[in-house]
């Protein structure tokens, strides 16, 4: 079953305006990889040079921040929802 990915307003210009995208995958990394394949320009906004999630982007599975789970290896279940949201941080 596909997983819904919610796209933030600031990144919708890279997803042809889509607010959400449905993709298949067993882990967050697989689904975001599929998202990158579908919208190549989006990849650079999500991933750093080492292939991790960029520092200025937060990814949630339902209510949970994947930084406190298994990062990109976080497993997904049917009906999970992934939210990509800009990080809010400072010094």
């Amino acid at each position: 079953m596909p997983v819904q990915i919610r796209i933030p307003t600031s990144l919708r210009k890279f997803t042809e305006g889509h607010e959400s995208v449905a993709l298949e995958g067993a882990t967050v990394g697989q689904v975001l990889g599929e998202l990158h394949s579908s919208f190549p320009d989006l990849g650079g906004r999500l991933f750093d040079q080492e292939g991790g999630i960029r520092r200025f982007v937060n990814v949630y599975v339902n209510e949970d921040d994947i930084r406190f789970l298994s990062q990109l290896d976080t497993p997904l279940s049917d009906n999970d929802e992934i939210s990509i949201i800009p990080a809010i941080a400072g010094g």
Binding site: S10, R45, R54, F56, P86, A87, I88, A89, G90, G91
Partner: peptide, 18 residues
């Protein structure tokens, strides 16, 4: 601070995050 600026704008276009 510089860290505050960096966190408040997008790294690519320097547009406001919020």
């Amino acid at each position: 601070s510089d860290e505050d600026q960096a966190g408040a704008v997008t790294p690519d276009t320097s547009e406001p995050v919020i």
